[in-house]
Design a protein around this nucleic acid. Sequence first.
DNA 1: TATGAATTCCGAATGTAATTCGGAAGAAAG
DNA 2: CTTTCTTCCGAATTACATTCGGAATTCATA
Lengths: 208, 208
Amino acid sequence: MKKKPNSVQNIDNISRESERKGQILNSAIKIFGEKGFQNATIAEIAKDAGVGDATIYEYFKNKEDLMLAIPVEFTKELIPQINDHMMGIKGAFNKLRKFIWWWLNYVEKNPGYGSIVLLELKTSKTYVSTEAYQAARSFYQIVLDIIKEGQEEGAVKKEINPYLARSLCVGAMEHIIIRWLLKDRKYPLIQYADELADLLIDSLKTRV
Amino acid sequence: MKKKPNSVQNIDNISRESERKGQILNSAIKIFGEKGFQNATIAEIAKDAGVGDATIYEYFKNKEDLMLAIPVEFTKELIPQINDHMMGIKGAFNKLRKFIWWWLNYVEKNPGYGSIVLLELKTSKTYVSTEAYQAARSFYQIVLDIIKEGQEEGAVKKEINPYLARSLCVGAMEHIIIRWLLKDRKYPLIQYADELADLLIDSLKTRV
DNA sequence: TATGAATTCCGAATGTAATTCGGAAGAAAG
DNA sequence: CTTTCTTCCGAATTACATTCGGAATTCATA
């Protein structure tokens, strides 16, 4: 709850309550991402973070709460980042293409985060009532906004239910990412970005 | 490995090595489906199946192996069932529509099975190297075959990569099912079937 | 700068649940 | 009716998550 008032703790890119909490979260994302929730142990995360096992429980209610804290912290950062990348791009389809590219690229660079968000999180029994769920929601809200914008500017078919269209886009992206996470991870994930964007854009496009 | 040679053990619809194994699997699907892998306990499954805890380990290597056995047994059954429903339907798009309807309907009637296959399974570290993964693959192979058939008969755009098209269809279906599993489950899942089918068909359709 | 009061930290104890052990109970064969 | 093989399971054992109690550190104040 309290920051170091004196020391040089000026920049910490991900806003955090304390350094300790940050250390633990970083180790958690690493270990959970590598081994999955089930096979990761608190002892291992504590060791990696350089703290005692019990210390983790000073900051997080339990193991599940620790996992759920990851998307809350990180997704908060993601939304400004993607919005930043979106700046200056005109037209719903160009934005959608950028979103796909950006998201695939992000997961490719942060596969641990991807595994947690796309594979592990949803098995938490309380997931829908957590902040983590809200964070995921607001992230995918961006896609919904793009689709609605596209309908206003006439590029996207008016008769499409925008929520269903979002499911189409998000579902396809997630499916491709999950396959990549589960399997190889050898070749670049973004190699799918363009072809997927073409297909989705063609699906939504108003016909002349 | 050995069947009761005398008793009335005549019909067991799902081919099984023994009644015991079947009892355990049925309880496992029930308990895992309700509580998730994490929160289900072996003791609870054993009790529900009317066997001792240790007996489970006579039939399955461990808790994870028990979960992985579920899709192997059940998906084997699903493929003939869906093929049966597909009989007499002409045209790729009619088949696709039927597949979507059938799959949503099946999950709605068997949400426990759905949770296991769509939410829990993928977190198993060894998933891709299991029979369960192969079973899921051959199930979704049906969609791929429909798409290829559609391309041959000229209904589906030739220039689409059929594997990507499958990702689109499967991803959208899974996304909608997962939302339903995580949230309400109150209203019928199949209410989405028609609209989703329309959208997917329109996405794949050859333009005149 | 010293002192009491918080706060942070963690080693060791506790509790829960997965897994293994060792042998009982039942069937098959002679 | 004994031997052998299989099935079954109660009672340990083990692996972790979580809690406890107090040590170490920091803070506020005089």
